[in-house]
Design a protein around this nucleic acid. Structure first.
Lengths: 149, 149
DNA sequence: TGTTAGTTGGTAAAGATTACCATTTGCTGG
DNA sequence: CCAGCAAATGGTAATCTTTACCAACTAACA
C-alpha cells in the first residue's frame, strides 16, 4: 500500500477513535501502520518485531490486544488461513487468495471476473454478510517441483 | 455425511493405500472415519477425543501425523480459518463458507450460483489451481445481538 | 512365520495465545 | 496547564497447540 493510502487510512482510524471515544495511543497507530505497510499476510510476531523498532518497550501482549481491537473496528481482517497461527490483512478492498495446500503460501489475486458475485448467496440463518473472498486451492510452483506425483 | 458415503470414502482410502504402498493402520482408518462423521470443522483435539473412544491408547502425536498424511493424500482438507488452531474438512466436493468476524463460527454454504466460477481466475506464477471456496465474511446472529452497532 | 520399512506412543521442547494485575497514558473538565 | 478518571499498556505466568525425537510396535510381503 502506498504512503498516501496509508496516511488516509491512519486519518480514518483517528477519526474513528474520536467518534467512538477510544483513546488514540501511539501503539495503536504504529501497529496499524505496520500492517498497512506490508503486502504479505503478517503474523502477530512479525508485527511485533517490526513495531518494536519504533517502540522498543512494546509488549507482545499489546500487539495481540491491539490487533484484536483493530479487527473489531473494521480496520483490519484476520486472514482465513490453513495454518496454525493468526495472520492479518490490512487491505480492506475486495481481493482473493491463492493458497498452496502443501506449504500454505498465500498470494493475493485481483480479478475483475470475481468482483461481482452476489452477497445474497451467503445469506443464511440470520448471518449478515459484508463481503467475500475467493480462496483458490492448489499447489505452488516450488512444491510441485519438490513433491512430484 | 451419511453412512453409505463414509463407507465409500473409506474404501477409496484403502484402495489408495494399496496403490501407493502405504500401510493401512487402524489409526489411519479410524481418524479418517471420525472426520467424515462430523459436519462441523473439527480441530485436532476434537478428533483426538472422539477417536480415543475406539482406540484408548491413541497418541495425540499420531492424530497430528495422520491428519497431515490424509491431507497430502487428498482425503481431507485443512479449512481456511481465521482462528489460531488448525481445522479439517472431510467434505471434498465444492462448497463454501460463512465466517463470523467476531466469534469465528464457520458454517457451510451450498450455492448453485457459485458452483461454476472459472478456475482460470486463479492461475498465477506457476500455481496450479485445483479448486476454490468462497468465504463470506460477516457477523452471525448471536454476535450481532450481543455486540450491537 | 521372519524380515523390514514405515508407523505409532510418549515425553520433552518449542511456539502461540490468553489471563492477570500493577503501572502508565490519553482524555476531559476546570 | 493540571488533576482525576477511565482505559490501555507491560510483563510475567499459565495455558493451549504443535513439533521433535526415539524406542517399541505393526502391516505387508516373501
Amino acid at each position: 500500500m502506498n504512503e498516501r493510502e496509508i496516511e488516509q487510512r491512519l486519518e480514518g482510524f483517528e477519526e474513528l477513535c474520536r467518534t467512538k471515544g477510544l483513546p488514540l495511543t501511539v501503539q495503536r497507530r504504529d501497529i496499524l501502520r505496520a500492517v498497512l505497510q506490508r503486502d504479505d499476510h503478517p503474523s502477530v510476531d512479525q508485527i511485533y518485531e517490526s513495531v518494536r523498532e519504533r517502540i522498543p518497550g512494546l509488549s507482545r501482549t499489546t500487539v495481540y490486544r491491539v490487533l484484536e481491537t483493530l479487527c473489531h473496528l473494521g480496520m483490519l481482517r484476520r486472514v482465513h488461513h490453513p495454518g496454525a497461527t493468526v495472520r492479518f490483512d490490512g487491505r480492506m478492498t475486495r481481493h482473493h487468495h491463492l493458497v498452496c495446500r502443501i506449504c500454505h503460501a498465500m498470494l493475493d489475486v485481483e480479478s475483475r471476473k470475481l468482483a461481482q458475485l452476489e452477497l445474497s448467496s451467503g445469506q443464511r440463518q440470520g448471518f449478515v454478510v459484508e463481503d467475500y473472498t475467493v480462496h483458490f486451492h492448489g499447489v505452488c510452483e516450488e512444491c510441485r517441483q519438490r513433491n512430484p506425483n
